[in-house]
Every structure is written in C-alpha cells, then in structure tokens.
Write a protein that binds this DNA or RNA. Structure first.
Lengths: 212, 212
DNA sequence: ATTCTAAACCGAACAAAAAGCGAACGCAAG
DNA sequence: CTTGCGTTCGCTTTTTGTTCGGTTTAGAAT
C-alpha cells in the first residue's frame, strides 16, 4: 500500500538480493555494512518501517536472520489498468496465407484481457484461415491478437505484407542478406524477400470451443 | 477530466517515469532539480494542481515521497472497455499428462472475457505442461479455460481424472463398451477406461506471446 | 492599450519525517 | 566466556513538505 521511501526501497532490494543469492536473510549489521551505516539501530529503523508497511515479516522478537518477504498484491501500476481489465479490439478480418486480409464485418469487436496487449490503441484481432501455422499451434478458425509493430524480433510471428497486396502469417527471421518468412508447416516452403512491410506481430492466440 | 497545463503534464510524466524507474516517488526538490527550478515551493504548487485535478494522490501532510498515481479511466479508443464483460477465473494450477493438477499460487486469477465461458462460477484456468495435445494446437505453456461439466460430448477436449489421482487433458470419445481418451500426439496411445471422472471441458485456449 | 487573471516562478523560513549515531542490553549458540 | 544477533534509548543531522509573501509572464477581457 503505502509508498516506500528511497532508503526503504534500497534496503528492501538488498534484502531481496541477499535472500536470493544466499538463501538466508542478512543480519542488520550486514545490511548496515553494505550501506556504510555504523549503527545497527539505523537498520533496525528501516526494518521496522518495512514491517509496518507490510513489505516484510520477521520472526519472534530477537530471532536472528528471520526476515521474510511478504508477497505483494500487485505492483501493477505500470500501465494503468486495474479497472480496465479488458479492451475491445476491432476484428479486422480473415487472414489466409497468400490472400489479402479480408474484412468480415465492420464494427465487429472482440473482448480481450488487457494483459494481452501492451498498446490497445495499436492492436486488433484477425481470424485465421488455413493451415499455414499449424505446427505453431495456430489453427484454422483461431483468433490472433496483432500489435502493430514494424520492427519485429527474430522468431516472432508476424503479419507480413508481400507486394503490397498479399498478407500472410509467418515466423520472421532477419538473415544477413534477406528476410526469411517461415511457415510452421512442413508442406510449405519459406519465402525469402529483400524487404517487406510488417503489419504487426502476434501477441496472443485465442481459440474458442463452441459448446454447440 | 480537467485539462492539464503543459507544465503539469511534464511534471506528471516525470513522476511517472521516476516511479517506474526507481520504484519510489521523487522528492519535490528532485523534481525541481530536473526542471531547473530553484524553489521547492514551485513544485509544491504543481503537485497541488495535480492533486486537485485528480491525477495523483499524496499521503498525510508531511509524509515524504508519498506521491501515488491515480489510475485514470482510459480514453475510449477504438475499443471500449466494458469491465462488466470480464470474469476473473481462478488459476487452479498446472496440468500435465499423467500428473495430478499441481496448484501454483493460491489466489492467482486471470481476467477472461465473459464471452469465453457460459458459466463463470463453474470455470477455471489451467496452464498446460507438456506436449500431449500438440496436434490440437494446445502447446506447453498455453492456458485453457475449463468449464466444470460431467457429461461432455464426443470429440470435446476434457480434463479427465484417472484412478482419482491423475488428471490429464484428452479428447473424449464414448464408444459402445468403453470410453476412449485420445491424446493429440501420435507418439502417445489412447487410454481406454470403463468409467472415469470428467472434471470439465475445455472452452478456450489462450496463448500469450511475451514481447522481449 | 489597459486591466485582470491564472500559471509559473522565487527565496526564505519552519516543522516534521526520515535517517543517522553510539552505547548499551538481553539472548542464544558454539 | 565469547561471538553474533536483534533490540532499546536518547540524541543529532539531513531530507522533505509546507507556508508566506512576493515577482514575472502570457493570454483573455474590458
């Protein structure tokens, strides 16, 4: 809950690291040594603050090296969610290997947990048609969440636009002199291009089973 | 809500960044230093404006470094958010073929669009471990939404409990004299049983691709 | 052009929180 | 007994938020 002060944060970080490295908690004087503090009373003060603020727990009075971390609820301020658990992304259409993206129904949307997308404003959903990514577990009828991103990393699954017309879902590999677009299907060969437009990268795959 | 002035926006951005980078709030004088302001009173003014406009919150009078961000309602871009359409399903644990369900972390949940489940109260999420359903596009690390349902239809993917101990994810087929539990992996053989407890059926598969 | 107003700024001063010190004390284990 | 450890007590220093009275700038209103 409450905010930590600068020093409290540093001390907490040190405890975490020590706990991680050594497997046991540091003594107050060890903490003091690390921060060049000559009195263990100072450290005791910080520890008390951290206990009061619910960041750590200590054993019975006097027990040595008994600091434990308290698992924190959610430090998820990072992107401002909390109440915004879900975004409705526009369903842009079907994507089939070798065919342009085909719009289905305008204004159709799909609710997606906000944790799936970094940038809701730059994301959309496509429905997969075809078998070209079957070995990566992307099947006919699946939905993929796409984030617009012109510079994907090697190995990411991307929507690539070939000849400004054909959209296709492939794994992206930048090789020394060319770009390889690799389907995840043994019966299909990779495509090599000098350059192509990357419309976005796949951030999530969603498959619904309809209970008829 | 209320519009921020240019300076107020800059200050807010700096606070955000500091909070993100350091994990704790900047002091007024640190903010001042960054903007080349020689008086902390100036910063105090900006902070007050931000509080008044509901962008930030501060602790009790005098508490140091107690600035917190107030989560803002996101601007409605192209996809609106309807928090009503989301259910938080409990993450029950890992499921691996031939192993009991292994609880991961109590209280962990996953936000799932309500359209994924018919009955939120009887649904939960499992994380897949292993390759047993790879041909059905359910990979190691995927999440599956399970709906408790003791009477699945033929061909549905189910969580079956064998010998009251081993949980496994298989396709379910009721045959004339037995039940066939079919893995979607050529290297594995189907399991035949006279009877077994079906814990639930898979309603959705979700796969996240982590950036970085 | 003049007045008015809100935003942005200054410098000084003040009180309280945070951080620090050193010296003791009690306790448990080797 | 010694050693390592957490704890307590009074005290000082540093950091930090706050207040107060002012100035400056820029844009809108009169």
């Amino acid at each position: 809950m409450s905010n930590l002060t600068k020093k409290q944060n540093e001390v907490l970080a040190f405890i975490k690291k020590h706990l991680d490295d050594c497997g046991y908690a540091p003594s107050y004087r060890e903490i003091g040594e690390h921060f060049r503090l000559s009195s263990s009373a100072t450290v005791h003060g910080h520890i008390q603050s951290l206990v009061d603020k619910g960041m750590i727990r200590i054993g019975e009075e006097g027990e040595a090296r008994s600091i434990e971390l308290v698992p924190q609820a959610e430090p998820i301020h990072r992107g401002f969610r909390l109440s915004a658990d879900v975004v409705n992304l526009p369903m842009m259409g079907l994507i089939a290997a070798g065919q342009p993206i085909e719009a289905i129904n305008d204004n159709e949307t799909m609710a997606v947990p906000a944790s799936f997308v970094l940038d809701g404003a730059n994301s959309y959903v496509l429905k997969i048609k075809g078998q070209s990514m079957i070995e990566d577990g992307i099947l006919d009828g699946d939905f993929v969440v796409i984030e617009r991103n012109p510079s994907p990393r090697n190995g990411e699954v991307v929507v690539a636009l070939l000849d400004n017309a054909f959209a296709t879902l492939k794994r992206f590999y930048r090789e020394p002199s060319r770009i390889r677009l690799q389907p995840a299907n043994k019966t299909m060969d990779p495509i090599y291009v000098q350059d192509c437009i990357i419309q976005g990268v796949v951030r999530a795959v969603i498959r619904k089973f309809q209970p008829v």
